[in-house]
Computed example of a mutant assay.
Amino acid sequence: MRHRVKGRKLGRNASHRKAMFRNMACSLIKSVVADEDAENAPKHPGRIVTTVQKAKSLRPFVEKCITLARRAQPHLEKAEEFGTSAERGSSEWKSWRESDQWQEWAAAMAPALSFRRRLISELRDIEAVEVLMSELGPRYIDREGGYTRVVKLATVRLGDSGEQALIEFVGDDRDRQRTTSRSSAAPVVDESEETETTSDEEANESVSSEAEASDETSTDATAEDGGADEEKKDD
């Protein structure tokens, strides 16, 4: 019994399992900026397909990395105020390097550099860290958690019939299109259609009033006939 034993072993030891999650996370992150014309370009950027158990175990690992990149964004924005656009090694850059402005830039950049080093130690991939710091961090700057979703697929994996699922980032173009299609706007009513509708309603009201008048007339006539028959019987 595995009471109070957290996590899934997935048929691997600890080091193998960590390396697998690192490789899967880098593949998912780098698919965001993948070249569409490349030979092995992903069909949908920001999405990979794996088994359900691996996707559920990979999700917290990826979201912790995105949280580190998101926490580094305020420090990067603050450091930009003291930065310079001069080319490295130029005379202007050297003068900025020796000024007090560089000291302020270094102090503001230190926390962001710490987050960057933590991401490199987790992923061991510079390209994936660059995508986190430049793309995913600014995207989720106002979102506190829940950066990915796991969607189960109906098709099973060939060979062992394993349950498949896809893990993808939320808040992309597909979500915006889905939100736009769900929002129902008020229908535009043409003035001619509104006039026709009003005339139809008036005609229906006149017909109903005529029908009620005819019903009242027939009721009165029936009552008079009944009264005449009763007088005859009395005679």
Rank of each mutant, 00 (worst) to 15 (best):
179 T>M: 14
149 R>L: 11
155 T>A: 15
97 R>H: 13
164 Q>H: 03
105 W>F: 12
108 A>K: 03
121 S>I: 00
139 R>C: 06
156 V>A: 12
167 I>R: 01
151 V>H: 08
190 D>N: 10
167 I>K: 02
98 E>T: 06
181 S>W: 09
147 Y>V: 06
172 D>V: 03
175 D>Q: 10
168 E>A: 14
99 S>R: 00
95 S>Y: 02
185 A>Y: 10
110 A>G: 09
176 R>Q: 12
150 V>K: 06
117 R>S: 14
105 W>D: 00
114 S>N: 09
97 R>P: 00
138 P>K: 00
178 R>F: 11
115 F>K: 05
166 L>M: 15
173 D>T: 11
112 A>H: 02
170 V>A: 08
157 R>F: 04
170 V>P: 04
100 D>T: 05
124 R>S: 12
183 S>R: 14
103 Q>T: 12
183 S>M: 10
117 R>F: 01
160 D>Q: 03
182 R>G: 09
114 S>Y: 00
107 A>F: 00
98 E>Q: 11
188 V>I: 15
187 P>V: 11
169 F>N: 07
92 E>C: 02
132 L>G: 06
142 D>F: 03
126 I>G: 11
168 E>M: 12
111 P>W: 02
180 T>Q: 14
120 I>R: 13
183 S>K: 13
116 R>K: 13
108 A>F: 01
103 Q>V: 10
142 D>H: 06
171 G>M: 04
109 M>E: 07
185 A>W: 06
99 S>G: 05
172 D>R: 04
173 D>S: 11
171 G>R: 00
111 P>Q: 04
138 P>T: 02
99 S>W: 01
182 R>A: 15
93 W>M: 04
158 L>K: 10
173 D>C: 05
167 I>A: 06
155 T>R: 10
133 M>Y: 03
92 E>Q: 13
106 A>D: 14
155 T>L: 09
186 A>K: 10
160 D>H: 01
167 I>Q: 04
146 G>Y: 05
131 V>Q: 08
125 D>Q: 06
119 L>F: 07
114 S>F: 01
159 G>S: 09
140 Y>M: 07
164 Q>T: 09
94 K>H: 10
129 V>K: 01
109 M>D: 05
183 S>Q: 14
101 Q>S: 08
172 D>Y: 03
190 D>I: 00
174 R>C: 07
191 E>R: 07
157 R>K: 11
187 P>K: 04
139 R>S: 08
117 R>W: 01
156 V>H: 06
116 R>T: 11
102 W>H: 12
172 D>A: 08
186 A>H: 08
140 Y>T: 04
178 R>W: 03
99 S>F: 01
111 P>F: 02
161 S>G: 05
182 R>T: 12
142 D>L: 07
124 R>A: 14
191 E>F: 08
134 S>E: 15
167 I>H: 03
135 E>M: 06
116 R>M: 07
176 R>V: 13
145 G>Q: 02
190 D>K: 02
98 E>N: 11
182 R>H: 12
179 T>R: 13
177 Q>C: 09
137 G>S: 07
